[in-house]
Amino acid sequence: MNPHDEFDDREPPRPRRNRHDAYGDDRSRRGWEPEPPAQTSVVGIIGLVAGTAGLTISFIPCIGVVGMVGGGIGLGLALLGVLESRNSAGRVSMGVPIAGAAVSTAALLVGGFWLALMTGAFRDNQRQQADPPPIPPGDTPIVVPAADLDREYDANEFDADRKYRDKQVEITGRVKRVADDVTPGRVTLVLNGLPATSVNCVFPLTEKPNLAVLEPGDEVVIRGRCKGKLKNSVTLEDCRRVLNDREQEARDAPPTIILADVLVSEYADVAAADRKYKGRALVVTGHLGPIIRRAGTATVSLQDDDGNDLLKCEFAAEEAKHLTRLKAGQRVTLRGRCRGKIDDTLTLTQCSVAK
C-alpha cells in the first residue's frame, strides 16, 4: 500500500459523459417537442382566389374593366392576411397573402388600362357627337361637285391630297344612302361619286334625324373638311348641310296642324304635296295603330276610323318611352317632320307625342 494513498482525500475522477447519450433523456425530461409548421392564412387564400379571378377577367376585351372588382376585393383581403401574419408571431405564413396582393394589383392595373381606354373612347365619341366647329373667318371652302372630287382622287390621289386634304370643301351631289354603320358613333351621308365608288360625308350622330328626311337621288350641298381617301372612299368630316332657301324656310316654319286623312288625301299629288309639306314640322291627328319596337326605337302607324293605315311615324328611343301610356285605337296627336313618301308610305320622322 502506498503510504500516500492513506492521506489522499481527492475524489476519484468521474467518467466523462458523452453529450449525445443523455440528449434524449434530457429532451424527454424537459418536455421538448418540435415546433409545428406555420399555418396558411385563410384570408390570404380568399384574397388570392379573388385576385386570380379578377386578373383572368381583366384580360377579356370589352369586359376587362370588371376585373378591377375582383382585384380590389383580393387586394383588401390580401392586406388583411399580411397584417394577420405579422401579428401572429410566426404562427401564420405570409407567403399566400403576399402572392394574393401581387395578383390583385396586376388585376387592378390591367383593368385600369381597359377603363382608361373606354373613357378615352367615350370622350372621343362625345366630341364627335358635338356640333361641328364653325368655319374660321377667311377659311373659304373649295367648291367642287362630289363626282369631280371623286374623279380627281381616282386619277391622282397624291395631287388631290395636296389640293384638298385638311381643307374646307363644299360639294354638291346626290344622295345614295344615310348610314350609321360606316363610322362608329357617327352618321354618314353617302353621296354618289364615280360609278363604282362614293363620297362619304360624316356628321355628328345628333344630325341623324335631320338627314333622315333625305331620299336616294335628292341633291344636297355638304360642307366639311376633306380627309382624303379612307377605306377607298373620299371622306369629309365635321360636315354640315347647306340648306337652300326652301329647306331653311321649311325647317324654321312653325308646325302645320292637319288631320292624318287630310294629309294623305293631299299626297294624291306627290309633287305638289312635297313642295308644301316635305321637310316641314307637322302636328297630325289620327287613331293610334300597332307599335313596332326595335333597338329602343319605335314605329307607329296612324289609322283612319275604319282601322286602315294612313301614315307611319318614326320615334327615337327617348320619345318612344312616352308611347307606353297610349293604347292602340286611341285618338292621338303626334308631332313630326314630313319625309314624304317612302316605299309608297307617307312617313314622319323625329316624332313625339304632342302635349
Rank of each mutant, 00 (worst) to 15 (best):
T345C: 07
P13E: 15
R294G: 01
E157A: 12
P132I: 00
L194C: 05
K276Q: 14
G112L: 04
P3N: 09
D269Y: 02
V213D: 07
I222A: 03
A146M: 03
Q129K: 08
P61W: 03
G95W: 12
G112E: 09
T52G: 12
R174F: 14
G81K: 03
C313M: 04
S93A: 13
V144C: 06
Q303I: 06
A328E: 15
L311S: 02
L48K: 00
L79A: 13
V103K: 01
R241L: 15
G307T: 09
A316I: 10
T285D: 06
N200E: 15
E237D: 13
G81C: 05
L149C: 03
P12E: 14
K176T: 10
C226L: 01
P37M: 03
K341S: 14
G81P: 06
A253Y: 01
G120P: 00
V143K: 05
A78Q: 09
I292M: 08
T40M: 06
C338R: 02
L311Q: 02
Q303G: 01
G51Y: 08
T105N: 01
C351P: 11
A271T: 13
S41P: 01
G100R: 03
T349D: 12
L302E: 06
H322E: 13
D124Y: 00
R241I: 14
R174W: 10
P15W: 01
L191G: 03
R280Y: 04
K341C: 12
A271Q: 11
D181L: 00
W32M: 08
G100Q: 05
V169Q: 02
M94K: 10
Q350C: 05
A271C: 04
L288W: 09
R246N: 11
V49P: 03
S41F: 08
A155V: 12
C351F: 10
T188N: 00
L80H: 06
G340V: 08
V49Q: 01
D148E: 15
G111H: 07
A99H: 11
C201V: 12
L189M: 10
P137M: 05
V169E: 01
E207I: 04
R10V: 12
K276S: 10
V175Y: 02
D154M: 04
A147F: 11
E84A: 12
A179R: 05
A38W: 09
A320C: 05
L311A: 07
A354D: 15
T345W: 03
L311K: 02
P184C: 02
T206Q: 12
N18W: 08
